[in-house]
């Protein structure tokens, strides 16, 4: 009898966190689970292909502002997503281009290339560098690749409650990297996002660094339905550690015009736009 009690106690000790998590996750007042929300976000229609202009504004702590103008294209080849970004201005970075192949298979690492006009060469980039900041912005290579999606291959998501982002009610989810190695690679120990559950888009996100300090906040200020697809028009990223921030503004968003397959290769990067 004593033995049975001991087993019950042990099971309770070890099972408690799991039970607690399940309670937090799935049944915070009957809200959908984190994984369900992530699945909704990732299954949202993004269009088969898109072209758009992207203006990037980078501001440092002292108020200095640098601006970049780019043209970017994204296209799905079955479930493989290819994205290419061409820099148009200013002169010192013009013609730089970034290309990524994002495979649906989580076991396959992405392939990435960077064209550097000063060298006139396309340099292969390790996909493990995905936690590095992308060309001076506060977005990492991984953030740029994911756009509005979330990575279920890297994070376990759970629902932690409801939230309010700019007057829009939403669901709050927390993402914890699946392994320490992923956390180190991405530079994040935790994320929390407020998701608009009417359109299944993230409205705000916060990221904590691997020392568990608040690292940055991402706010999507302007979401508009373009050609039937909910589209982010302005994103603000604030880095709390450095005081640096980045604003991304999309324009001339076009889901209907065809995007040539040939633009997603290294020769097209060299040719530029």
């Amino acid at each position: 009898m004593k033995q049975t009690h001991l087993i019950i106690v042990l099971i309770s000790i070890f099972a408690l966190p799991v039970l607690a998590q399940n309670l937090t996750d799935s049944n915070v007042n009957g809200l959908p689970t984190g994984e369900e929300i992530a699945a909704h976000i990732n299954s949202r229609d993004e269009g088969k292909a898109v072209s758009r202009k992207l203006k990037i504004e980078m501001r440092d702590r002292s108020g200095k502002i640098r601006q970049r103008e780019t043209m970017s294209y994204r296209k799905y080849f079955a479930k493989e997503k290819r994205t290419v970004i061409f820099y148009l201005a200013p002169k010192n970075i013009k013609d730089t281009a970034f290309l990524t192949y994002d495979y649906n298979d989580p076991d396959l690492a992405d392939d990435q290339w960077l064209y550097l006009p000063a060298l006139r060469k396309v340099r292969r980039i390790s996909a493990s560098d995905r936690g590095d900041y992308f060309l001076g912005t506060d977005m990492t290579y991984e953030d740029i690749k994911l756009e509005t999606r979330v990575s279920t291959a890297d994070f376990n998501f759970q629902t932690i409650g409801t939230c309010n982002a700019k007057g829009k009610p939403g669901l709050k989810i927390e993402g914890i990297p699946k392994t320490q190695e992923i956390a180190r690679e991405l530079g994040y120990s935790k994320t929390q996002s407020c998701v608009d559950n009417e359109i299944w888009m993230v409205r705000t996100s916060q990221f904590w660094d691997i020392k568990d300090n608040l690292l940055k906040t991402v706010t999507i200020n302007d979401i508009e339905k373009i050609q039937g697809i909910w589209t982010q028009k302005n994103i603000e990223v604030e880095n709390h550690k450095t005081g640096h921030s980045t604003g991304l503004t999309f324009s001339e968003v076009d889901y209907r015009s065809s995007v040539a397959d040939g633009i997603f290769n290294t020769n097209a990067m060299k040719r530029g736009l």
Partner: peptide, 10 residues
């Protein structure tokens, strides 16, 4: 050229 983890061989 190819990438392996943090490495690129070319």
């Amino acid at each position: 050229s190819n990438a392996f983890d943090h490495w690129v061989l070319r």
